[in-house]
Write a protein that binds this DNA or RNA. Structure first.
Lengths: 146, 146
DNA sequence: CTCCCTGCAAACTGTTTGCAAGTAC
DNA sequence: GTACTTGCAAACAGTTTGCAGGGAG
């Protein structure tokens, strides 16, 4: 596992380049997603946002989440009960581990998986354009406590 | 890829063993899920069910889907837009490929992935209890047409 | 100054729940 | 006959939409 290196400023840059206006809501939300250790739903992000910015509208958060997802800055987490939570996308990684005990998301090196997929493409005639692997279980911390 | 070998009778047996009563709705729904090539949502299954059994209630279908999922007979598919579709579970397989062009689900041998996961457990101290890998792209049929 | 973004409220969709009637056992 | 299942309708939660006012460029 590698450590997360999210730079909120890069996200703002990406937003600007996509042609949207930069506002305080956006900065708030980007900060929230970029710094959360846990996958967040739009609803949860809204609750967090209102702590520092009480008048934040719910719809605004949903709209922003959609925008961030379309730009590929955040990514949907497919958990046991639904898939409305998001984590920041790390450009070079894509394997995700979710601890069922503490809920934290960890990021794993995806290279072995990439190799596996590439191999499968060769033998099957399929063309793979996207993949998502998620692992569930107990992280090393929770594992020790148990 | 291996071919699918779902036996609706096994599902009925599993249901009986779980202590529920066998009714016609159940038989209808099991048939629908066991024979569909495509991932189905509860809503879709309901629509199909009403073709042969018009008075089928929507809630009944949702309840049955939940039951089948809890018994592990069907499994949630985590697609691009939401994860409310289900496919039959094949006992020995778990890798799923969804063709973005025709929507069909194909089942892949998961052994290489199992090995990968086991290796990762050893080196990380994590304990993995469940995994889901889904691949998206074009199946060999759609690939040729393009 | 113009147009995009925001907040609010209402609408909508997919899903769940409560209950009376029906049906398997 | 008893108790689980069903169908219906209402409730519910998460999400989307329409619109008037506000703020960025």
């Amino acid at each position: 596992m590698r450590s997360r290196t999210i730079n909120p400023k890069d996200w703002l840059t990406a937003l600007v380049e996509s042609g949207v206006r930069v506002t305080t809501v956006q900065e708030t939300l980007i900060d929230i997603f970029a710094h959360s250790e846990y996958p967040l739903s739009a609803e949860q992000a809204w609750n967090v946002a209102r702590q520092s910015r009480p008048k934040t509208g719910r719809a605004t958060v949903y709209r922003m989440v959609e925008k961030l997802e379309n730009l590929g800055l955040i990514r949907r987490v497919h958990g046991y009960q639904g898939c409305s939570h998001f984590v920041p996308t790390l450009p070079e990684l894509m394997m995700l581990f979710i601890c069922l005990s503490c809920g934290r998301a960890e990021y794993l090196d995806s290279q072995p998986l990439d190799d596996l997929i590439q191999q499968s493409e060769h033998t099957s005639g399929r063309h793979i354009t996207d993949s998502r692997l998620q692992l569930f279980g107990a992280c090393s911390d929770c594992q020790q406590k148990a």
